[in-house]
Design a protein around this nucleic acid. Structure first.
Lengths: 196, 196
DNA sequence: CCTACCGATCGGTAGG
DNA sequence: CCTACCGATCGGTAGG
């Protein structure tokens, strides 16, 4: 019984992730969601408390996954560029394993109400700070150029967080190839002979 | 008289750009817009035909600006990396000169109805194709590594199109500095010694 | 540019 | 999980 109800809830979340991604959170009605699930709108409330609860669940889940992927890498005894490579790979894996949910996480978080909105922003700041730290260490070690760490970090994330837009699980690139090429590009650029 | 009405319309568009960016197109009501403008909701319709007409206007305007900025550069007799640098600078200028409108253009276009939606997608494809062409030429010329042009292009745009999120006109970086640093980063990476 | 109002749809609840 | 329904709000119109 409890198991069956959990499965249904799971299903509602999966469908919601897809609809919120495709149409946006605000433009997706509970009737849209119910129809896609195959039940009446009122019946949704036997499984979830509110529309926003679904959004909260999606955002918390993805946030958690990002930290679970990054935390072990932080402790490793590696040079900054190797550490950054691993972090990039971990981040890409979370996105490609959760295409719909990642898209919602990245674009629909602004519809969270307090205190979830503030929690989200704090969490995101912490995550970015971890990356900034790796980059700062790399500059100290002389592995990286003396670029502004925050600026580099924003550029890096923009590239990583765009992947859900074009990545296809059965496309021409594997996750490993994307990760390798993106790391290479952002670490070494595309120009053959560097002009200083 | 006609001039006064045009000014009001202009003002409605400016306010709409800001609201659509902050709250999203779907979550912004015509009453929100009217209140922010300082009139009643019904009065908006003396200046605009519909909510979507505003979105269409914003998207068309920004699309036009991107092409106006890029077209003259395409004809120039420059190496691919120099041409790409100029294109990047032009693209960044359009975004930083139209922060609200660019954000709407980049994220709210999916609420366009047909035929505007199809027109938008075609236009965007053409713009991307212009960049791909520059990159392909650079690979032929031996200026660029043999990276996948489409892949590089997507990464490039993701970095450029993220700028509106953090750029502040009175911030620590000028538009010229951002453009220079971003070109440098994406052309040369951040690693000091390239590992092949 | 306003008041007054339209039908449609919204998130959610009552009660079974 | 359903039928029936709530008050609120939506984009937009009529008429002045």
């Amino acid at each position: 019984m409890g198991k069956k109800k959990g499965q249904r809830k799971e299903h509602i979340y999966k469908v919601a992730q897809n609809l919120f991604r495709e149409r946006g959170y605000a433009a997706t009605s509970m009737r849209d969601l119910a129809t896609a699930v195959g039940i009446e709108a009122a019946s949704l409330y036997n499984h979830i408390r509110s529309k926003e609860e679904i959004l909260q669940g999606i955002c918390a889940d993805i946030a958690n996954q990002f930290f679970l992927a990054l935390n072990p890498i932080k402790e490793l005894d590696l040079t900054a560029d190797q550490k950054l490579k691993r972090a990039i790979h971990a981040h890409i894996q979370v996105i490609t394993n959760n295409l719909d949910a990642s898209a919602v996480f990245l674009h629909e978080w602004r519809f969270l109400s307090e205190p979830f909105l503030s929690e989200f922003k704090t969490m995101r700041s912490n995550y970015e700070a971890d990356y900034v730290q790796i980059i700062e260490k790399g500059i100290e070690e002389g592995v990286f150029k003396t670029i502004d760490p925050k600026f580099y970090c924003l550029t890096l994330f923009s590239s990583l967080n765009w992947i859900y837009e074009w990545y296809k699980p059965d496309g021409k690139f594997t996750v490993y190839e994307i990760s390798k090429q993106l790391s290479h590009l952002l670490l070494n650029g595309i120009r053959k002979t560097e002009i200083v």
